[in-house]
Amino acid sequence: MTLWGVLQVITLVLVVVGAALAVWLRDLLAAVIALAASSLLLSLEFYLLQAPDVAIAEAGIGAALTTAIYILAIRKTRRKEEE
């Protein structure tokens, strides 16, 4: 397996780890940050697959705007998830 293949496998594993953290964490702000990190790593994966257009769109929408919307919603409601 080449270096690019190893890098892609590491990136995809980190994407799955970030998504699992976003589900598992009880602090909703930390979950949103984990989701943003997962989305940014997904954008890196798109760049590694030679699709820079999709990578820019994913970084702009997934990592920036979605995080801002979730942070605004958390600020309007509660920060801790109920048991």
């Binding site: 702009g60 929408i61 920036a64 705007l65 801002a68 919307i69």
Partner: peptide
């Protein structure tokens, strides 16, 4: 989307 992320910031 990049400009809108600046507005969101």
């Amino acid at each position: 989307a990049v400009i809108a992320s600046a507005i969101a910031l």
